[in-house]
Simulated assay, not measured.
Amino acid sequence: MSEAATAKVGGERLREAVVEALQCVYDPEIPINIYALGLIYELDVNDEGFVDVVMTLTSPSCPVAGQMPGMVKSAVEQVAGVRAAEVELTWDPPWSSDRVSEAGKLQLGLI
C-alpha cells in the first residue's frame, strides 16, 4: 500500500473515532446524541490530526448554547490521534428535524 493510501486509511479511522466521540455528546433537552440529531453540519479531519467542526443547536435559546461548543471540542480532543479541534457554532441554515438521522428518528418515535 502506498504512503498516500496508508494515510487515507488512517485518516478514515480517525474520522470514525471522532464521529464516535460526537455520538457521546447529548443535547440536554432531547435524549439523542448531537450527531444523530444532525447538529453537526461539517466535520473535517485532516491527516495531521486537526479537526474542524461546524455545528448548530436545535434552538438559539438552547440553555447550553454557550457551553456546547466547548463540550464538543473537549470530546473531540480526547480522541487518540487528534492534535487539536476547532468548533464553530452557526445558525445558518437553521436546524430542523429533517436533519435527524434514521436512528435518531427511531429513538424519537418519528418513524
Rank of each mutant, 00 (worst) to 15 (best):
T56W: 00
Y41N: 08
S96F: 08
P28G: 08
V82L: 02
V87L: 06
E42V: 08
I40H: 00
V82N: 07
A5L: 13
L89D: 05
A5R: 15
A75M: 05
P31N: 12
N46F: 00
Y35A: 02
S59G: 08
S96N: 11
V25K: 02
M1G: 15
L108M: 15
T90G: 01
E42M: 01
I32M: 07
Q23S: 13
S96K: 09
V76D: 02
G70Q: 14
S97W: 11
T58F: 08
T56D: 04
V64Q: 09
I30W: 06
D44S: 13
I34K: 06
V54D: 11
V18L: 07
R13G: 02
G38M: 04
A17W: 03
P28L: 03
S96P: 11
S61K: 13
P94D: 14
A80V: 15
V45L: 09
V9P: 03
P94G: 07
L43C: 04
I32L: 14
V79G: 05
N46Q: 09
T58A: 10
K8Y: 11
T90E: 10
L39P: 04
I34P: 05
E102R: 15
I40Y: 00
P31F: 10
I40C: 01
Q107E: 14
E29V: 12
M1S: 15
V64C: 07
L22I: 00
E88L: 14
E29P: 09
V87K: 03
P94E: 14
A84K: 13
V18T: 09
A4W: 05
M68S: 05
Y26E: 05
E16Y: 01
V100T: 10
S59W: 04
V79C: 10
Y26P: 12
K105F: 01
Q107S: 13
L108C: 02
N33S: 14
G11E: 09
Y35V: 00
R99Q: 08
N33A: 12
G38P: 01
V18P: 10
P31K: 10
E86Q: 12
V100W: 04
P93A: 11
R13Q: 09
A17Q: 13
I32W: 02
A65R: 12
D27T: 03
E77Q: 06
P69V: 07
L43P: 01
E12Y: 03
S74Q: 10
Q23K: 15
K105Q: 10
M71E: 12
T56Q: 06
P94I: 07
V53T: 07
A5P: 05
F50N: 12
A7K: 15
R99I: 00
P31T: 03
V18R: 04
M55H: 05
M71R: 13
W95P: 05
V64P: 02
